[in-house]
Design a protein around this nucleic acid. Sequence first.
DNA 1: TGTACGGATTCCACCGGCGGGAAGGTCAAG
DNA 2: CTTGACCTTCCCGCCGGTGGAATCCGTACA
Lengths: 135, 135
Amino acid sequence: MRIGRVADKSGLSAKTIRYYEHIGLVRPARDMNGYRDFVETDVHKLRFLARARSLGFSIKECRMLLSLYEDHERASADVKEVAQRHLRRIDRKIAELDGLRGTLGRLVALCHGDERPECPILEDLASPEADGDAP
Amino acid sequence: MRIGRVADKSGLSAKTIRYYEHIGLVRPARDMNGYRDFVETDVHKLRFLARARSLGFSIKECRMLLSLYEDHERASADVKEVAQRHLRRIDRKIAELDGLRGTLGRLVALCHGDERPECPILEDLASPEADGDAP
DNA sequence: TGTACGGATTCCACCGGCGGGAAGGTCAAG
DNA sequence: CTTGACCTTCCCGCCGGTGGAATCCGTACA
């Protein structure tokens, strides 16, 4: 199967699939003419990768998950640990963004947003003494 | 004032400050010996940039905010729009991460995390038919 | 037979926002 | 005179690809 078809079936772009081969995530065979020749297991792998990436796992984590997937002697604890680490990272990121949203939301609410130059947003940026929470 | 001192005062690294000069955010003078020579307004600008970056604004947005800051004829509406766009971006990102956390959290909860190879996480990655929400 | 076209190949460059580190210049203290 | 703390420029690398150029391959059609 050629790369275009695989792209359609996996949901990844041909570019991305070539990149994944480049970094060793898949190893498709080659035809006489030099074209990549993917078999079903390659497609399956690529779908796995697409799904894992869509859940926010890094390439490195995808590599680990893939090798766990292919290791039928694996312990589910190992998989779970990878996922939990990612979950904690997501939680940290959400907390960080929530903080930003709070601060920024307060500033935006304070700004009149009219033709005048006075602007609490710029004032905060220019002198971030406090957090804007003070009474 | 030399770059090390400015780094301390602004909270940015010397590397970052050089980079900001490179992309035209600051234009410090130079001493006879070639060293950058920052004045107070440079430091002020850099603190402004550090604060804006810490709120998650992109470099491009920082550039806009800085030019609005320096334009005393500005309309606060323009500043507010930049901030609101960023706010919406943050909200989208949070929503996305919340979705990931939901899916991933369910999968992690389902996984026994023991020595056995059975693993709902890998099963989902291998065949993402549904979202895991179906009864 | 020519040729037009869709798809494939390679390679190089670029994105943001820096960080690391090499190779060297400058200056004050000891 | 040397040490050490600075400073300079320069290029490479990170992540996870994307875009584009130049070049093949194979088929369909005139």
